[in-house]
Design a protein around this nucleic acid. Structure first.
Lengths: 136, 136
DNA sequence: ATTTATCCTACTAAAATGGTAGGATAAGTA
DNA sequence: TACTTATCCTACCATTTTAGTAGGATAAAT
């Protein structure tokens, strides 16, 4: 039961961009990588995923920089998680198409589903604005 | 973000034993393995972990069977989880001794810690009695 | 023309996962 | 007493996932 580094670095990256909202300074991959103590090449992949998910945009092409694609309060932790992973499924049989060998006789599915929902709700209910305020 | 099979099979095993409380029937590893659609050899390891954690006992030695070591309401999902894993830590830096390269400047640790606590509380707050009632 | 930051794909070492395998031990059975 | 069989215990292993590295193409600014 761990979150992977991409989700963690991705969230840190998004928070760094959120901190910058209102400024017109550009933020380069390079600078973010340095701040986060991650190689530029690895952050490269992380930002690519965030971009693909529509969470960040590159303004002005090359030699320019990144910014959030929405206001911080409209980006949840879960949005960032799903930029790197499928929908949360703490056990496989919760996924669409997944099923366990016990089939409908599995009396635990209800419990796992509830826990899954608790986690997901927490992540959906926390946005970048909340996280910015927490760090004050 | 997945629970592993040992925790899942372990929980199912415990629920099976909990269903048996009050009966004096013996339950063999062999029978549990068959019910759970798992090999005897693999369940072997799972039961060994549950036993080591003090959650089940073998009554009567060989050619005997297993039962819960405590009443179902005194065994939480988290007890079963920790029979197979260390204390829950959804990111490494939450563990004793763990630290991230950002050190004290990490403004996200508070968020992760909160989410970790939400998950743990759910697991600690759910016991085998609750799960038995859910399956009715 | 050159620099350099983004973009894109492939590869890889190490660790975790989900088991299998082999055999020792001890209790019940014939 | 000999035999069966269920528990107990340790080692091993194939596959997948994780956490990156590497190489180079592209395009904008200088």
């Amino acid at each position: 039961m761990k979150f992977n580094t991409k989700t963690r670095y991705g969230l840190r990256t998004m928070l760094e961009l959120a901190n910058n909202v209102g400024n017109d300074e550009v933020i380069f991959q390079k600078d973010i990588a340095e701040n986060q103590a991650v190689s530029v090449k690895y952050l490269d992949q992380i930002i690519a995923a965030l971009k693909k998910a529509g969470l960040v945009v590159n303004v002005g092409g090359k030699k320019s920089g990144y910014k959030l694609n929405k206001p911080p309060e409209d980006i949840s932790v879960y949005d960032i998680y799903t930029a790197f992973e499928d929908d949360l499924a703490i056990i496989d049989c919760l996924l669409h198409g997944g099923h366990c060998p016990k089939g409908s006789k599995c009396s635990l599915k209800g419990y796992w589903l509830g826990l899954n929902q608790v986690i997901r709700s927490n992540m959906e209910g926390t946005n970048l604005r909340d996280l910015l305020q927490k760090q004050l």
